[in-house]
């Protein structure tokens, strides 16, 4: 085996493992969400399929795959087919730039535990998260239904608004790490995680990513109470499943990003790096679920008010203060 083919084999193995782990994790996050929400509501949650209901994701998958794939007669067929993929794929692509462990050495070759270390990794993340808007908007529009259209328009406006505060809250991180590369950002937090220097940016980022993945205080695009299911009201079968899985992949990826930007990524005492990274990521996932069980949905004007009049100015002031601080301590 030559050196380059060994590299390629290692890389493909890494890719396969990452892909498999993320998809499995997303499926089990659905299960975990149902379980934890049940506990919050003093219920037991799914416990029939397999021991403790552990095979429930498999049953869900079979159900979704065997359901009728219904397309409304007046829908825009191609966009209707395309939208779920456009919602799910950017989410999984973002993980390509997240470093999830220290560099390993296998067969005498260094194997960095990141799919690709892009020197504009942070911008790559922002770019893909802005692409994810298309799935919501086009899915809502192509269904040709009132509720879906309303959900799509709401999703569009919400995700554009909160992308701004999300990007601005990451500027101090870049200023502290002096790099766009996520590997460098993690390396810069070897001693102290950035959440210590930037608690405000951390909170703004957390609120913004909650809005980005349309989780419950900000789930206006799919608001069951008012819009039936919002942008995916007309979807069924595995197309709906793709929207659904995309949402949970988004939770994992955004949790991993929050850990990378503010909690020091895979750095941590005692435990191996990969374990630290998973613990931090899953803690964020748990927090999202906990938040879903706790907070009520915002009204639309409150959502826009929070995004434009509170988070964005706060993020800008935070950038200014960080700049001053960095200039004084140079």
């Amino acid at each position: 085996m030559t050196a380059s083919s060994l590299d390629i084999a290692l890389f493909s193995a890494k890719l396969g493992v990452v892909f498999f782990v993320i998809l499995t994790l997303a499926a089990y996050l659905v299960f975990a969400e149902r379980k934890i929400l049940a506990w919050i509501q003093d219920r037991k949650g799914p416990n029939r399929v397999g021991p403790f209901g552990l095979l429930q994701p498999l049953a869900d998958l079979i159900k979704l795959l065997t359901k009728e794939d219904f397309v409304p007669a007046s829908a825009d067929k191609w966009l209707f087919y395309l939208a779920p993929a456009m919602a799910a794929i950017p989410a999984i692509l973002i993980f390509a730039v997240i470093p999830f462990g220290a560099t390993l050495t296998i067969f005498g070759r260094p194997l960095p535990l990141v799919v690709t270390d892009l020197n504009v990794g942070l911008l790559f993340f922002l770019a893909l998260s802005s692409i994810a808007v298309y799935g919501v908007a086009l899915g809502g529009w192509a269904s040709n239904s009132k509720y879906a259209l309303l959900g799509g328009i709401r999703g569009l406006a919400q995700m554009i608004s909160y992308e701004l505060s999300m990007g601005l809250s990451l500027v101090p991180v870049v200023m502290l790490a002096r790099s766009f590369s996520l590997t460098d950002i993690v390396a810069a937090q070897a001693s102290v995680p950035f959440v210590v220097y930037q608690p405000l940016a951390f909170i703004i980022f957390l609120v913004s990513i909650t809005a980005e993945c349309k989780r419950i205080p900000f789930d206006l695009p799919e608001a069951e109470g008012e819009l039936v299911a919002g942008f995916h009201a007309e979807y069924s079968g595995m197309r709906f499943g793709l929207f659904f899985v995309g949402e949970y992949i988004n939770i994992i990826v955004l949790g991993g990003l929050a850990a990378t930007f503010f909690l020091g990524g895979w750095h941590g005492p005692l435990l191996p790096p990969v374990v630290w990274f998973s613990v931090k990521t899953l803690a964020f996932a748990f927090f999202f679920i906990w938040m879903r069980g706790t907070l009520p949905r915002l009204r639309y004007d409150q959502l826009m008010h929070l995004g434009w009049k509170l988070l964005t100015p706060l993020a800008l002031i935070n950038i200014l203060v960080t700049g001053w601080w960095l200039a004084l301590n140079r």
């Binding site: 934890i36 049940a38 506990w39 919050i40 509501q41 003093d42 219920r43 037991k44 906990w290 938040m291 069980g293 706790t294 907070l295």
Partner: peptide, 16 residues
């Protein structure tokens, strides 16, 4: 406070 309440319910025995 809301988070605290939900957390305490999470640790409670289910009534199912």
């Amino acid at each position: 406070g809301g988070f605290r309440v939900t957390l305490s319910h999470m640790l409670r025995k289910p009534v199912t």
